[in-house]
Amino acid sequence: MKIIVCIKQVPETGNVKIDPQTHTLIRSGVPSIINPLDTYAIEEALRWKEKLGASTLVLSMGPPQAEEALREAVSMGIDQALLLTDRRFAGADTYATAYTLSLAIRKLAPYDLIFCGKQAIDGDTAQVGPALAEHLGIPHIAYVKKIEDIDLQKATVRAHRLMEDGYEILDSRLPALLTVVKEINEPRFPSLKGKMRAKKLEIPIWGADDLGGEVANFGLSGSPTQVKGIFAPPARGKGEILTGEAPLIAQTLIERLKAQKII
């Protein structure tokens, strides 16, 4: 079995600040990490590797420093890594990103499974995974919270897809792409031996010329979405907690809601 995990390097957004003049993220001094949801995709790949045996590869499109994120994935136990980096990839929206990833994955075929995190914490679109599956012409299951079974003989996967009010159990043929939610597992820490291996591992770098495809479809020029502006939403005010006896609280609450014309 061959599993490909797609990851993104993102700024650690615990406390991100936005430049009030340019409305862009202040990146300096903010460490970069693997998109947290992608670590669940890595963990799931590792669990199935341990269970059924598999070769695992982690793939990322990004600036040259995204190599750090790939090395971290390797230190957790992923076998191989591949970085897609090229100035022509810059400014890609979800469509161009998925297109670029799909060209690389076509070159990596055959494969059985692709894992992605549900979404990235910076863009929050949750589109790249499903769009990638469409570019590749393979089925996908998004928001997977549990993989019940992978049957390599029949080339099928059965997964639980998280819904707002429950979950669906879906069967899919392989190869398939699954995007995972954080309920699926608990990502492991990197191991010392993994870190030592990651330090030494050669990570190939592919650019636009290695992928082939239409140059106009890469990066900003290949992106149907154009960002008009970025702004920081006003900070939410603090909530108020009413205290006292329950009937009194209820009464106060109703009065306040009425005063604000909410009810």
Binding site: R188, F189, P190, S191, L192, K193, G194, M196
Partner: peptide
């Protein structure tokens, strides 16, 4: 368990015995 998975129990042991 977590320290074991991270290989920390072998930091002082020779590689021939599975250490680091």
């Amino acid at each position: 368990q977590c320290l074991a998975e991270a290989d920390l129990f072998g930091v002082y042991l020779p590689e021939e015995y599975g250490g680091c």
